[in-house]
């Protein structure tokens, strides 16, 4: 009773609170200063879809159109043909980011692992025409930012 009264009259709880915030004032901050330093993405992060190549630099895509069939939003427009080595290769691979919901059904459907999620999340653009991609713009080593920020107009 007396202790409780003393605690109240000497503002002990308030001093404890002040001490806590004083400690936090000098603690390291958790903020990532974004444009300079981005927070690293996790392993299974779903960024924009990209086409990948194998170790020899050959495209993995065999133009089987499984992704086109799996896609609930009709993002894909794929056409394939046999090349000189008698292998199926895509001749047209148009994809529209605007429609993509990042559901991952195409990634699951792909038999060769050609189409996968990348870790790129900076997808803003000023022109919605920049949101459609042709085949050579779908590869993972394509400069996405230049495409999105530039005045490029796709065919």
């Amino acid at each position: 009773m007396v202790a409780k009264f003393l605690k109240k009259i000497l503002l002990i709880d308030l001093l404890i609170g002040l001490w806590v915030t004083l400690k936090y004032t000098f603690k390291p901050k958790v903020t990532f200063q974004y444009p300079e330093r981005a927070k690293p993405t996790r392993r299974r992060f779903r960024g924009i879809l990209r086409l990948y190549r194998n170790e020899q630099g050959q495209p993995l895509c065999i133009a089987c159109k499984m992704c086109q069939r799996a896609c609930p939003e009709n993002c894909f427009d794929i056409e394939g043909a046999k090349d000189a080595d008698n292998k199926m290769r895509p001749t047209r691979f148009n994809w529209i980011l605007e429609r993509c919901t990042f559901c991952g059904l195409c990634v699951e459907a792909c038999p060769t692992g050609a189409i996968r999620f990348s870790h790129e999340f900076r997808l803003s653009t000023l022109d919605r025409r920049n949101l459609s991609f042709a085949m050579d713009q779908m590869y993972y080593d394509f400069d996405l930012q230049e495409h999105l920020q530039g005045e490029l107009v796709n065919p």
Partner: peptide, 10 residues
Amino acid sequence: RVVAWIQSRI
């Protein structure tokens, strides 16, 4: 600044 520091912000 100080309120941000207290709240672990910058």
